[in-house]
Amino acid sequence: MKFNAMTAVAALMLAVPGIAAADPDDDTLIINGELEMTTKAPLPAHMEDVNMDQIMSGWHFRSDETQALEMDDFDNPGMIFVDAGRDQWNAVEGSEGKSCASCHEDESSMTGVRAVYPKWDEKAGEVQTVAMQINDCRVNNMGAEPYKYDSGPMANMEALIALQSRGMPVNVKIDGPAQETWEKGKEIYYTRFGQLELSCANCHEDNYGNMIRADHLSQGQINGFPTYRLKNAKLNTAHGRFKGCIRDTRAHTFSPGSDEFVALELYVASRGNGLSVEGPSVRN
């Protein structure tokens, strides 16, 4: 268990249920009995100065029952939404009479995409997320309406695309033209927001493994997104989750799809460089 001043403060604040030793477990995530996932990895080079031993998937912080839901694709309710995403992939929409499949053929053409996004887009001159690319295709190539950024259809499509890279290591680029956006994301990560004056780091870097009330704080990794949450029984996007977290600090949050959240997504993704792409994962 990590211990520092913040932990002590948290201990005082959260003493009612008692601070249970809630360290992440050492289980191994093998999906469908065959795909072994990397759920613990050495710190990426850019995190050398961070007071952490290794990076860990949020899967390790969940109960055995919740973990089991991700170990078999049939038990994973997120797969319902992958099926829906596959229908969307093959559905012709918009003025150009095209579906995703018209240009990209089989969804397996998306293999490797989720692992390297968000990514600098030379043509657009900005860092783009998978969601932005999906909408870019819909608007400019299909002549269709964009999906709302953190909507159900968007999450479905992100889940279908993430699944094609499942098991591949997250490997987002943070140098070159992406660096400026990455730096901006890093600054947001360490900035305290809201009436509770909490930064991402206060919970997910300083206190992962500890309890916040009756819940178990993870490292806030996003390698498992989109993620099926038991809480709301649907797929949740990374930006939707960011929004929920910042709202809980009692702050005005940034919007899903905003420049701030795109930058934060790149930075948080880079903290998971080396973990397997897990989407669609299952969390509480």
Partner: peptide, 8 residues
């Protein structure tokens, strides 16, 4: 049945 962390 446990109650979540900060409700997020």
């Amino acid at each position: 049945v446990t109650i979540g962390g900060c409700g997020g």
